[in-house]
Simulated assay, not measured.
Amino acid sequence: MRKRPDGEEFDAFYTTTAKGLVATVYAMTGNMAEAEDAVQEAYARAWQRWDRLTREGDPLPWVRTVALRLAVSSWRRTRNRLRAQRRHGPVPDAPALSADRVALVAALRELSPDQRRVVVLHHLLDLPVEEVARETGASNGAVRTRLSRARKALGTLLTDIDTNDEGVATHG
């Protein structure tokens, strides 16, 4: 069974070394947020191995090595993302939602959670009534009833919605 680290001993170690370690990693990365993240992760890993680290002597070199490696890994991931972006170009903008889709989402929000769930499973995911019943824990008849009531409510909600000149859904 693993012994938990002595909280006071670890706290004292952290208090006396963290500020200097952040400064060291910051000097290497030039990014304070990355330095702080790497140092915090290194201390978290040290906490998990505290008994072994203190048995082996001064834990600071181990924590510093881990923090620097984490910072370098973060830097490499960032560099690789930038290279990939230059190679492939920026991510294209997502298309705007159509007025019909906005209206449908707004109408779905007006349904009860049970009705909304069966509509999404049956009509948007194309699951048969029997599968919707299994997934929701309801009987086939209950699913059919919920679908019927939801369709009726959606019909009313969606006929009440008009779009303005910019294609934005409005209640009319």
Results as ranks from 00 to 15, higher is better:
88 H>R: 14
93 D>R: 15
101 R>M: 11
92 P>F: 03
83 R>D: 15
123 H>M: 12
89 G>A: 05
70 L>K: 01
132 V>D: 10
86 R>P: 13
82 L>T: 08
105 V>T: 14
75 W>K: 14
87 R>C: 03
88 H>E: 13
130 E>I: 02
117 R>E: 09
142 A>C: 11
87 R>P: 10
83 R>F: 15
69 R>V: 07
81 R>Y: 04
121 L>A: 03
104 L>G: 02
91 V>N: 12
132 V>E: 03
117 R>G: 06
91 V>R: 14
113 P>D: 07
90 P>R: 09
73 S>A: 14
79 R>Y: 09
77 R>M: 08
139 S>Q: 03
125 L>N: 05
64 R>Q: 08
78 T>Y: 11
85 Q>L: 14
68 L>K: 06
101 R>T: 09
79 R>H: 15
119 V>Y: 01
105 V>A: 15
100 D>I: 07
93 D>S: 10
63 V>E: 09
81 R>G: 12
134 R>E: 12
70 L>M: 00
133 A>F: 04
64 R>C: 08
97 L>F: 01
76 R>H: 08
105 V>Y: 14
113 P>M: 09
120 V>Q: 05
115 Q>V: 06
64 R>K: 13
84 A>M: 05
110 E>G: 04
115 Q>P: 08
71 A>H: 02
85 Q>N: 05
98 S>H: 05
108 L>F: 01
71 A>F: 00
105 V>W: 03
100 D>M: 15
77 R>L: 11
114 D>N: 11
87 R>S: 13
124 L>H: 06
115 Q>H: 07
139 S>Y: 00
100 D>Q: 08
106 A>D: 13
138 A>T: 12
139 S>P: 14
75 W>H: 11
92 P>D: 04
74 S>F: 10
80 N>F: 11
111 L>M: 05
135 E>Y: 05
115 Q>K: 06
142 A>N: 04
137 G>V: 00
124 L>S: 03
100 D>R: 11
136 T>V: 06
135 E>D: 04
